[in-house]
Amino acid sequence: MNEASSAEPVSSADAMIGIDGLRLWYGDHEVLHGVSLGIRERHVTAFIGPSGCGKSTLLRCVNRMNDRIQGCRLEGSVMLDGTDIYAPDVDVVQLRTRVGMVFQKPNPFPKTIYENIAYAPRIHGIARNGVAMDELVENCLHRAGLWEEVKDKLQQPGTALSGGQQQRLCIARTIAVRPEVILMDEPCSALDPIATAKIEELIDELKNEFTIVIVTHNMQQAARVSDYTAFFYLGDLIEYADTSTIFTAPNKTQTEDYITGRFG
């Protein structure tokens, strides 16, 4: 129906994640109609579009979160570093250590701040002894910009932190297993502007190490944090370009109408 912008911003050679002809159904309802795009390593890619456009569904395809939904099936491929993540021999648990996820509502484990970080690395055998684990916890909290705020209360429950701190704790928890990709599904929608700014600042730092894909309803946020922006509508990728192009001179009328608030 709609063709994405002909000038693809990320060539297949540059794409760390390659999504090709992806169609997805929930039962009989087709939610994605053959989406293809490449996501560039160590850059931030934003998915935008009105509710129901398929952007969160697509995001969840990248670490197979949709597997858990009954009646969900898909066609097409999602390649991570050249490997088909839907191949039968792929270990989904392993995949999710490579592709971490941060959700809309901060969801720390009902454990201490320390344990929130240490839990997954312990399971995956990333830090074996206490000293190594202490270092890992401190390092992750530093990188998530939370260390100074929590260093004296590591044994307090993670759920006692403010919403913004909890979200940074979740990011620290995600990076503790050394993923390559971090998926963020509206990570700031439950946060106030200051907590949002801290997360955005963090995204800017994390992209030096990780490939980040973020779904956001906040257009200004997409403009601020991302290098590339993909606009979806009714299950189609309408336009995909570098973010400055999308927000100054988009190629497609639908993109223009959506981002300028003319939709509907």
């Binding site: 257009m219 200004q220 403009a223 927000f247 100054t248 001179a249 988009p250 223009e256 981002i259 300028t260």
Partner: peptide, 9 residues
Amino acid sequence: HQPVASDLR
């Protein structure tokens, strides 16, 4: 309004 696209231009 924080204009974007054609509005910004």
